[in-house]
């Protein structure tokens, strides 16, 4: 029964992005910055490190696909990038000892990577007119700040949750 908590936690994280968007006034900072919540993605990274990498990749595929279909309509983007970055992270954490402060740097690196890949894709399919400088100032910085704050608040609860879940599954 307790095993059902894992998908539940992931589903909560999945919807947390859009719930944040409901509360966050979109015209904050006069529209000069566009902070994008990546809470689900942070949860996925925690899962890959403190729970199990392969399960995280499977969840990345599944929920990336849902994200594509439900929110963006551009099939394949998150479906592909979520698992790929989870894989890269698992390789990185093998070399770097994953204490929470070190992991913050890795998470921020991953989010920057994700944003840039999605930006690249959007330029490729001509869905955006932003130049790279604009993208870096308007989006990337704001995204990193917002998600860094989320990490600082939720890192310990998330780690504990996944460590506990791992015990349940073992």
């Amino acid at each position: 029964m307790k095993k059902a908590l894992l998908p539940l936690l992931i589903i909560v994280l999945f919807y947390s992005d859009s719930v944040f968007m409901i509360f966050f006034p979109e015209q904050a900072f006069n529209g000069a910055y566009i902070p994008v919540p990546r809470f689900f993605f942070i949860g996925l990274l925690f899962m890959s490190v403190f729970f199990d990498r392969n399960t995280a990749i499977k969840y990345g595929f599944l929920f990336g696909f849902l994200f594509d279909m439900f929110y963006t309509g551009l099939l394949g983007a998150y479906f592909f990038f979520f698992p790929l970055i989870v894989y890269i992270t698992s390789k990185l954490t093998k070399w770097l000892h994953s204490t929470l402060p070190v992991f913050l740097v890795i998470v921020l690196f991953d989010i920057a990577l994700l944003e840039m890949m999605i930006y690249g894709l959007n330029v490729l399919v001509q869905r955006t007119a932003l130049s790279f400088e604009q993208f870096a100032f308007v989006r990337l910085l704001a995204v990193l700040v917002l998600n860094g704050l989320f990490y600082i608040v939720f890192a310990i609860p998330l780690r504990n949750a996944f460590v506990k879940l791992k015990k349940v599954f073992d």
């Binding site: 859009s18 968007m21 929110y71 551009l74 999605i118 959007n122 869905r127």
Partner: peptide, 11 residues
């Protein structure tokens, strides 16, 4: 019920 949280497509 939702606004595209990645805010690329204004959906």
């Amino acid at each position: 019920i939702a606004r595209n949280p990645d805010r690329w497509y204004e959906l």
